[in-house]
Amino acid sequence: MSYFTNKTVYITGAASGIGFETAKQLIQQGSNLVLFDVQPLDDVVSTLQTMNKHNALIAGYDLDVTDAAMTTTQIAAAAHEQAPDILMHFVGITGPWTFDEMSQEQFERVMNINVFGTRNVLAAVRPFLSRGKQVMVTASMSSFTGSYGYSSYSASKFAVWGMMQSLSFEWKPLGIDITVFAPPPIDTPLTQSEVGVMSKAGVGMKKLAGELKIENAVKSMLKGVEKREFLVVPGVMANLIRLQLRFFPVKWVNWIGNTTVALSMKK
């Protein structure tokens, strides 16, 4: 028996990346899984069923988080069948373009998915959350520090961080615990999509935080949820950067970033 055994976990963005890896680790612990994604989930459900040694529930729902009405309808339909104990929200996209190269449409798409999509999911699941329930939302190290080529992504993740801090103040007295997962780069289809798009300077700054294996990052996140921690930052380098942001002057942090950009551009 683990902490997650017999708990019903809603996972958004479950078709790939961190969401899919989380589903794989949880099904082995006997969690009931309710999966949501805009991508088809048939293959994901089939894969999870082969790992389902506890005969847990596995259900899948189509979901576009930018559609508030659809999000409300789909989560309500899922809750009618099986109410959530924990929501784990992973839907998000990057925006690996410099500000000067980015169109308004690209900027708005990042904000719509990462910020408004998160809001839509939280609003839809809120009627089904009561004392003892939990919410885990994926932020990023970019929630705390900007990076070259990440003006849209950092703006969205700063917003998610602020939203979740505020919601923690509102929901904690009601017995609903929030965890914010703020990892450094993880080897997922999301980060792989940046290859050949992000500039050398952006790649150089990302390397400062190091890249984690997806299995280890998810294990750290699940431990944080089990302990009901508010913030989970996996990885040694990511935590060093987090401490640096807390204790060093902004001009020092910016000097490191500017130096990294300059050196990257010379390569």
Results as ranks from 00 to 15, higher is better:
Ile11Asn: 03
Pro173Leu: 11
Thr179Gly: 04
Tyr153Ala: 02
Arg126Thr: 03
Leu63Asn: 00
Ala69Trp: 06
Leu35Val: 04
Thr8Glu: 02
Val65Trp: 02
Asn254Arg: 13
Ile241Glu: 14
Ser154Leu: 03
Gly17His: 12
Leu129Gln: 15
Val195Thr: 06
Ser46Phe: 06
Ser16Ile: 01
Leu63Trp: 00
Gly149Met: 03
Tyr10Pro: 02
Thr66Phe: 00
Ser2Cys: 13
Thr259Glu: 11
Gln28Phe: 04
Pro84Lys: 07
Leu26Trp: 05
Ser103Arg: 13
Thr94Leu: 12
Leu174Gln: 15
Phe116Thr: 09
Tyr3Glu: 15
Ser46Lys: 15
Ser130Asp: 12
Val121Arg: 02
Phe248Ser: 12
Val253Phe: 04
Val115Lys: 00
Asp62Tyr: 04
Pro183Ala: 04
Ile176Phe: 01
Val9Ile: 15
Val203Cys: 04
Thr260Ile: 06
Arg242Lys: 12
Glu21Lys: 12
Lys200Leu: 11
Ala123Gln: 15
Pro249His: 09
Ala76Gln: 09
Thr188Ile: 06
Gln28Val: 10
Asn114Cys: 02
Gly146Asn: 15
Leu245Met: 13
Pro234Gly: 07
Ile86Gly: 07
Ala14Lys: 14
Ser130Cys: 04
Val233Pro: 06
Gly257Ser: 11
Asp67Glu: 08
Leu174Ile: 06
His89Ile: 01
Leu208Val: 09
Lys157Ser: 06
Ser193Asn: 10
Ile113Phe: 00
Met51Asp: 08
Leu208Cys: 05
Ile18Ala: 12
Phe99Asn: 10
Pro249Thr: 10
Pro183Lys: 07
Lys266His: 08
Met265Val: 09
Gln104Tyr: 05
Leu240Tyr: 14
Val137Pro: 01
Phe116Gly: 00
Lys219Thr: 12
Asn114Met: 02
Lys266Arg: 14
Gln29Gly: 01
Leu87Phe: 05
Ile186Leu: 03
Glu81Met: 06
Leu243Pro: 01
Asn32Pro: 09
Glu229Gln: 15
Asn216Pro: 02
Thr98Val: 03
Gln165Tyr: 02
Met221Trp: 10
Ile58Trp: 09
Val160Cys: 00
Ala78Val: 06
Thr8Met: 02
Ile113Ala: 00
Gln74Ala: 03
Gln104Thr: 10
Phe248Trp: 10
Gln82Met: 09
His80Val: 04
Ala79Trp: 01
Asn239Gln: 15
Ser2Pro: 12
Ala79Ser: 11
Ile241Leu: 12
Asp67Met: 02
Leu190Gln: 13
Phe99Val: 10
Pro234Asn: 10
Gln165His: 09
Asn52Thr: 03
Asp64Phe: 00
Ala182Val: 07
Ala262Gln: 15
Lys219Leu: 08
Phe107Thr: 05
Asn6Ser: 14
Asn32Thr: 08
Met163Leu: 12
Gly30Trp: 13
Lys207Asn: 14
Glu101Cys: 01
Leu263Cys: 07
Glu229Val: 05
Thr22Ile: 10
Lys207Leu: 07
Val195Ser: 06
Asn114Arg: 03
Ile58Ser: 11
Ile18Arg: 08
Ala78Phe: 01
Ser151Ile: 01
Gln106Lys: 13
Asn52Leu: 05
